[in-house]
Amino acid sequence: MVETLELPKDLMYGAVLVTVTGQRELLIENYRGILEYSPECIRIQAKNCQVCVQGKTLLIQYYTNEEMKISGIIKSIQYD
């Protein structure tokens, strides 16, 4: 249905959008909230899954209802 109508998937499924710029910047959209935050790990709750960003000196540059920007040295992005 979604594919035949060519609707945006993030809207229809409520999928999380993760935009990574190099190793130092990450932008997350379509999320519910933060579950855990430490300089080594940020765990974010999305509609269907959890995203866990691991790295060093992680910092949330800004945090709004729509999007969140994370900077620092990113080592891994894991979906649970």
Binding site: R32, G33, I34, L35, E36, Y37, L59, I60, Q61, Y62, Y63, T64, N65, M68
Partner: peptide
């Protein structure tokens, strides 16, 4: 963390967290 989520849900801008 819940406090932060509440802030974002109510459109309160937070930066340099």
């Amino acid at each position: 963390e819940r406090f932060l989520n509440l802030c974002s849900n109510h459109d309160i801008l937070i930066w340099d967290l």
